[in-house]
């Protein structure tokens, strides 16, 4: 119990961010029209690729003088994270381009 309280105090800013982002997330996407369900999901999916920052930090400070399992898994994390980010944004753009084209007709 004491641990949790200490943790809360140490990370209070982060915990505030969490609490407020939940409301923000709900507010920002409420009333989204059904046409945009797929692109929104796909775009949000790309944002969750923000985990790549973790991967970069991990590999950034890893010992690269020799090839260890940790290094390989870290590189894999960066690779997967990039797939998520780049693939996600590109595919969302492709979808939205399709919608846009139709609108002008």
């Amino acid at each position: 119990m004491e641990d949790i309280l200490i943790y809360f105090f140490t990370y209070k800013e982060a915990i505030f961010i969490i609490a407020l982002s939940i409301f923000l997330g709900i507010e920002v996407i409420s009333n989204v029209p059904a046409v945009l369900h797929t692109p929104l999901m796909s775009g949000a999916n790309a944002i969750s690729g923000v985990i790549i920052i973790g991967g970069i930090i991990l590999v950034g400070h890893a010992d690269v003088s020799q090839l260890s399992i940790e290094l390989i898994l870290g590189i894999l994390a960066v690779f997967f994270g990039t797939l998520n980010v780049i693939g996600g944004f590109v595919v969302t753009d492709r979808m939205l381009e399709m919608f846009k084209k139709k609108k002008k007709k």
Binding site: E13, A14, I17, I18, S21, I22, F23, L24, G25, I26, V28, I29, L40, A44, N45, I47, S48, V50, I51, I53, G54
Partner: peptide, 13 residues
């Protein structure tokens, strides 16, 4: 903070 906010936004959405 960017990771926390980005992640939670997606989680909520």
């Amino acid at each position: 903070q960017a990771m926390i906010l980005g992640g939670i936004l997606v989680g909520a959405a």
